[in-house]
Design a protein around this nucleic acid. Structure first.
Length: 706
DNA sequence: CCGGCCGACTCAGAAACTTATAA
DNA sequence: TTTATAAGTTTCTGAGTCGGCCG
């Protein structure tokens, strides 16, 4: 569905935007007061009742006054955009179409073919906190919080399928069977081949088996019967009719409904992760020393609940059980937490990404990055100075240069007995760095495992004078050129790195032996209040997007880009790609990738043959005009296929979504869409992002810049 | 005063699931 | 049309960051 964007003439700075009556707020106050006075009575149902008709009212209002883009032919029907932008209904109806988007309307009218109507997109209603005028006291996150706690996975049901050992059929107790089944479930993953995984699993499994058990080792275990059973179960589930599946889904929705929403102050919010993690084998990333360990069952006794004092506390759904404790911490955003059984890590239940609590802190994050923008020139001057000094100051500023220029993470210390051995800036070791030179000057090659054990391989060098070579490097994701103006600093950084990785150090020694993240952040606090290392990542990601996107402003092909959604989208994605490369956001390449590309090649080849054929026929054809049309058509299909293939190759191992979700100020995207031909936002933001970034959609007009 | 642990939050890619598209 | 596959979306939970507190 295409969600239209208003011309934003009605977008006002945050504070003054409350121009609409907000019935839901007034309505909501009623049940809240009721709840408070009657105390300990669940107010959720009341709030819901009050909210629901309000939402309906809202949408009806909207429908009446909603403008449609001329090109919104297929999917923009009825109610799919009702929650998108409540304020656009006040926008002057004519202006948008007649001015900016005129060229676009013309174009899209043409291609508005009788497509199957797309499934309508429902955007979740969002509490519009940015229009709220009553800020909470410093540090407070809510006045009232009521929820129903968490939902537990079902107890393990023994299936009775027997595994084999040394060819013999073995009977297991339900407890033993449970963890054997966890192992069987992972038999086709990469973990199954890893020694650490097997060793850790065997330790637990053999303990559960007890002394003198018939099973003596993992080597001769045969889990295949259980694997087959799991496969069969999956098949059974798949073979259910549509109706049966729907019934199961609806039943699930019904049981989960009480947990989906919570009451926060006087409105409803979506819960994020109210399902307690089921038991299973731990799947650490990379070479995690604890992979294969059993992640135990979580009981209510492990869980701490958080709600307000005057709320009805969550009931424990498991009979005979009770929560570990109930607290009322209004300076915290979590609803519940427990500790996992692997490393004792905290597992929190939080509100969803679209909630006001998440939205507010998200906005604060981007505002802080924008604050850095104001200070960055000065801070970079300071770094330039610091690079020339020695000792701690040199280390601090060299590290900062890397963080600022390469978007490397801060790099906390890690205990490699408990976690995988990965590094960031402060924890870089000599073995991760290779210094060199090429025709342009010095180079640094980074090769280390970062967060999630994702490889970071980057040859950092000066931009070649030769345009051809520069272009080549630009297209190589493993090469990056030093930012313009930073050439001198880079040479200094290389020298510093040379001394920091000198022969007196072992490969396993720290590069920045005097640094840790907390001292580095203390140093940053002096440069700008609230500044920490991670802000540079946010800042540089968002700044890069803004810069790249606004190159469209005086792009020679601007008008043709604006006329075509596909090319304009590609322009956006190319900018997004730059950020993904900067931040080293990657994703696994599909196992069938090669065959997919092969298929594409064949298709392109087929089209070329078809084209040659047509051209031949054209010579002897009666209707030359018609043939010409056909040829042009085919040529377009070929070029479309070819760009598709290029995009596919380029994005094979690159994830664009991570930066979109976490690093890119959504207002950049919103403003760009509004500015450039009123580009449909839903082509770049999916439903979740539109919900998550509703605040930004409301806030940013076409002139907004990061 | 600082180092290490605790606690709370953001960020991360894989897996599971759903929808769109091609054959 | 039906069906297979690819693309897109959501869920899941692991892995970081960073402030604060305590000994």
């Amino acid at each position: 569905s295409r969600l239209t964007m208003s011309e934003s003439d009605d977008d006002k700075p945050l504070k003054s935007s409350k121009k609409e009556p907000k019935p839901e707020e007034d309505d909501d106050d009623v049940p809240l007061k009721k709840a408070k006075s009657s105390k300990k009575e669940n107010v959720q149902s009341q709030v819901k009742e009050e909210n629901a008709p309000t939402a309906a009212k809202e949408s009806k209002k909207k429908k009446k006054t909603k403008r449609k883009r001329g090109d919104d032919d297929d999917d923009d029907d009825d109610d799919d955009e009702e929650d998108f932008d409540t304020r656009k209904k006040k926008a002057p109806a004519k202006k948008e179409k007649s001015s900016k988007s005129s060229s676009k309307s013309a174009k899209t009218d043409g291609k508005g073919q009788p497509k199957k109507p797309k499934k309508e997109v429902k955007v979740e209603p969002v509490y519009e906190w940015w229009k709220d005028e009553q800020p909470l006291a410093q540090g407070k996150k809510w006045r009232f919080l009521e929820h129903n706690g968490v939902i537990f996975p079902p107890n393990y049901e023994p299936h009775g399928v027997k595994m084999k050992y040394d060819g013999q059929i073995i009977s297991l107790t339900p407890e033993q069977e449970a963890i054997a089944t966890m192992y069987a479930a992972m038999s086709r993953t990469d973990y199954a081949g890893k020694d650490v995984f097997k060793k850790n699993f065997w330790k637990e499994f053999s303990e559960k088996l007890g002394k003198n058990h018939a099973i003596k080792d993992l080597e001769n275990c045969d889990f295949q019967p259980i694997v087959d059973h799991l496969d069969a179960e999956r098949e059974k589930k798949k073979a259910l009719t549509k109706e049966e599946k729907l019934k199961i889904k609806q039943a699930k929705e019904k049981t989960e409904a009480p947990y989906v929403t919570v009451v926060l102050d006087s409105h409803l919010e979506k819960n994020g992760n109210f399902r307690v993690e089921p038991a299973g084998l731990f799947r650490g990333r990379g070479e995690h020393p604890k992979m294969g360990q059993v992640k135990g069952v979580i009981q209510p006794e492990d869980i701490t609940m958080n709600c307000s004092e005057d709320a009805c506390p969550p009931r424990c759904s498991l009979p005979g059980h009770a929560w570990q404790s109930l607290v009322h911490k209004d300076e915290q955003t979590w609803l519940a937490f427990y500790k996992d059984t692997i490393n004792g890590e905290f597992k929190y239940v939080f509100l969803s990404a679209g909630s006001s609590l998440k939205g507010q802190s998200d906005r604060e994050k981007f505002e802080k990055a924008r604050e850095l923008k104001k200070h960055v020139a000065r801070i970079r001057q300071r770094i330039t100075q610091g690079l020339k000094s020695s000792g701690l100051e040199m280390q601090q500023n060299t590290a900062l240069w890397l963080i600022d220029n390469l978007a490397i993470r801060a790099g906390n210390e890690k205990d490699t007995n408990e976690e995988a051995d990965t590094v960031g800036c402060c924890s870089l070791r000599v073995e991760h760095i290779t210094l060199g030179t090429d025709e342009e000057g010095p180079t640094i090659y980074f090769n280390f495992l970062g967060k999630d054990s994702i490889e970071y391989k980057n040859l950092v060098k000066l931009r070649p004078k030769d345009e051809e070579k520069a272009k080549e490097g630009e297209e190589n994701p493993c090469v990056s050129f030093v930012r313009e103006g930073e050439e001198k600093n880079f040479r200094r950084v290389v020298e510093n790195m040379r001394s920091l990785t000198s022969n007196s150090k072992k490969p396993s020694d720290d590069v920045f032996d005097q640094l840790n993240t907390s001292s580095l952040n203390t140093y940053l606090k002096d440069l700008m209040p609230g500044l920490t290392a991670k802000v540079f990542r946010t800042y540089n990601a968002s700044f890069t997007l803004d810069q790249e996107l606004y190159k469209l402003e005086d792009h020679p092909e601007k008008s043709s880009f604006l006329r075509n959604d596909a090319t304009q989208l590609k322009f956006y994605n190319d900018a997004n790609y730059q950020v993904a490369i900067l931040c080293n956001h990657s994703r696994a390449v599909s196992k069938t990738f090669d065959s997919q590309v092969e298929k594409m090649d064949e298709k392109i080849k087929g089209l070329h043959e078809e084209l040659a054929d047509l051209k031949k026929k054209k010579k002897s054809a009666d209707n030359k005009e018609q043939m010409k049309k056909k040829i042009a058509n085919l040529e377009e299909r070929i070029s479309k296929q070819e760009t598709q293939k290029q995009i596919k190759l380029k994005l094979a191992g690159v994830a664009l979504s991570t930066s979109k979700v976490n690093y890119l100020d959504p207002r950049i995207t919103v403003a760009w869409c509004k500015r450039f031909g009123n580009f449909p936002l839903n082509k770049v933001f999916n439903k979740s992002l539109i919900t998550k970034f509703k605040w930004a959609i409301d806030e940013a007009d076409e002139d907004w810049r990061f």
